[in-house]
């Protein structure tokens, strides 16, 4: 059977839940298809032209009433099944959409036609993604050009990767091994070559792997350097003359907005604050920040995000 694969490997915590949905629909639709086929074949044989089958309908009125109820029944029964399946499938999806708090962040930048992966500790890879087994991993993803999609069939997960914003995807690998990575959103000439592999490793092996290879400083350290270089501290630093919000302890907190309402200061908020500073201005401040659009690449932005995370809610007290 090695050459006739029917079913993909299962290597994530959510895979079994997705497969349960799949097999339930296979069963249900197999049943319906068989029923329709049997009914059609039986009628086609029994009521073929020239057969002697009884075709009389003794009581027209009773027949009409029965017809009416049959119609209602075969609207109501499928509807009930659909609603049950809907709720179940939506529950799996929403679980999918909620990233666990303890997830390990890894950053992904898609571009025509490769995947750049960056670990907060500084290790980088291209068209490969190393992850630990048994721990939720959160991918924070963006694209430098067109829309891509990050698809891991063995994990049953997939998420489009958009230019101009971050999308996230999380999973927990359950089995060490190598699995395929595809781009599933058509992105131009070499779309079919925008592929790679995910390597799920035991935690100890993953820790060893993280500390090896080409290290270029942690993302936070690089982000701090970029932060200084762009002069961000001139306004956001402790001795700034300008009235600008301090950024220590900001990450993950609700931010009250000038126009009313609040947003959570997540990766996307920080991104927008740097590139589109007029979009969500903090309450109590003037929209004086200039945009850094065109001056900062996606990977630098992610470094700064990591830096602000590092001085964010989990930062040591003295840094606040």
């Amino acid at each position: 059977m090695e050459h006739l694969p029917f079913f993909p490997e299962r290597a994530s915590s959510i895979a079994a839940e997705v497969d349960d949905l799949y097999f339930s629909w296979l069963g249900l639709s197999g049943l319906v298809l068989a029923a329709v086929a049997v009914v059609i074949v039986v009628f086609a044989v029994k009521y073929r032209a020239g057969s002697q089958a009884d075709r009389g309908i003794p009581d027209r009125a009773a027949h009409e009433r029965a017809t009416h109820w049959i119609e209602i029944a075969w609207m109501a029964i499928p509807l009930a099944i659909f609603l049950a399946m809907y709720v179940w499938a939506a529950a799996v999806y929403l679980k999918h959409a909620t990233v666990p708090a303890d997830a390990l962040p890894i950053y992904v930048v898609g571009k025509q036609w490769m995947w750049h992966v960056r670990h907060p500790g500084g290790r980088r890879e291209i068209d490969e993604l190393h992850v630990p087994v048994g721990r939720p991993v959160e991918l924070v993803m963006t694209s430098q050009d067109v829309i891509h999609s990050f698809s891991l069939p063995a994990f049953r997960v997939k998420q489009d990767v958009l230019p101009g914003r971050y999308t996230t995807l999380w999973f927990e690998a359950t089995r060490a091994g190598e699995y395929r990575l595809f781009c599933t959103q058509y992105c131009g000439t070499a779309h079919s070559r925008m592929i790679g592999r995910v390597v799920a490793m035991e935690p100890a092996a993953f820790a060893r792997w993280l500390s090896g290879g080409n290290q270029a400083g942690t993302m936070a350290a690089r982000g701090a350097a970029r932060f200084r270089q762009l002069g961000c501290g001139g306004c956001h630093g402790p001795n700034a003359a300008v009235h600008a919000p301090r950024l220590e302890g900001l990450f993950g907190k609700p931010v009250p907005l000038r126009g009313g309402g609040t947003v959570i200061a997540d990766e996307g908020y920080i991104r927008d604050a740097i590139l589109l500073p007029g979009k969500d201005v903090r309450a109590g401040y003037e929209p004086t920040m200039p945009t850094f659009r065109g001056q900062i690449g996606e990977e630098d932005l992610l470094d700064i995000v990591e830096y602000l995370k590092s001085i964010g809610s989990n930062a040591p007290e003295e840094m606040r």
Partner: peptide
């Protein structure tokens, strides 16, 4: 027959959690 198969497999795709894997 073919429309029935097409319709039934549409239900797989309408199911949110399952569509994530099947999409594209």
């Amino acid at each position: 027959g073919l429309f029935t198969v097409g319709g039934l497999t549409g239900l797989f795709l309408a199911s949110l959690g399952l569509d994530v894997h099947l999409h594209d």
